[in-house]
Simulated assay, not measured.
Amino acid sequence: MSEKKIMLVCAAGMSTSLLVSKMKKIALEKKIDADIFAEAASKAEEKSAEEKPDIMLLGPQVRYLLKKFEDKFNFPVEVINMRDYGTMNGENVLKKAIEIIDNKDI
């Protein structure tokens, strides 16, 4: 299984940083090869051009960017479940991201 690049985007890149660290911890425990990182919405286009993520996950506070980013990128763009985001449930967010990545070619 190849490395999965998961990009989280929020207003300033700060609130997703905690979620990123929780997701990385789960990935390590479950031996999932994943590169997980966060970026501010204002730099999302630039960062995704550099990193070429497999999926972009938007924090609920920037869900208004969903349509714009879906039209712009050729990889899945999803809004993080509000409950998982609010409780910083890294396991659920990681699981959902991997499901989407693994099913995008079907």
Rank of each mutant, 00 (worst) to 15 (best):
E45Q: 09
A27D: 10
Y85A: 13
M88P: 07
V62D: 01
K4Q: 12
A49T: 08
C10F: 05
M7W: 01
K96P: 01
A41Y: 13
K4T: 05
M23A: 03
A40E: 07
P53G: 02
F69C: 03
L57N: 10
Y64W: 09
L8W: 05
E45P: 00
K52G: 04
E46V: 11
G90I: 06
P60N: 00
I36W: 06
N81A: 07
L19C: 02
M1T: 13
D33E: 12
Y64E: 03
S21H: 09
F75K: 02
K22I: 04
L94F: 07
S48W: 03
Y64G: 07
N92K: 15
K25T: 14
I55S: 02
V20L: 01
F73H: 09
V93A: 05
M56F: 02
E78N: 05
K47V: 15
V79T: 15
K4A: 13
D35I: 00
L66D: 01
I101Y: 03
P76S: 02
T87G: 07
K72T: 04
I101A: 03
N89F: 03
L28N: 14
K22G: 11
L8T: 06
E50Q: 15
V79A: 05
L66H: 05
T16H: 07
V62Q: 04
A41V: 09
M23W: 04
N103A: 15
I26P: 12
F75T: 03
P53Y: 01
L94E: 11
Y64P: 02
T16E: 13
G90P: 01
Y85S: 06
S42T: 11
G59R: 00
I55Q: 02
N89G: 11
M82F: 13
R63Q: 15
V20H: 04
N81V: 12
A12Y: 07
S2F: 13
M1R: 10
A40D: 06
G59N: 03
I106Q: 08
F69G: 00
K68L: 04
E99F: 09
K24R: 14
A27T: 06
S2D: 13
K22W: 02
L18G: 15
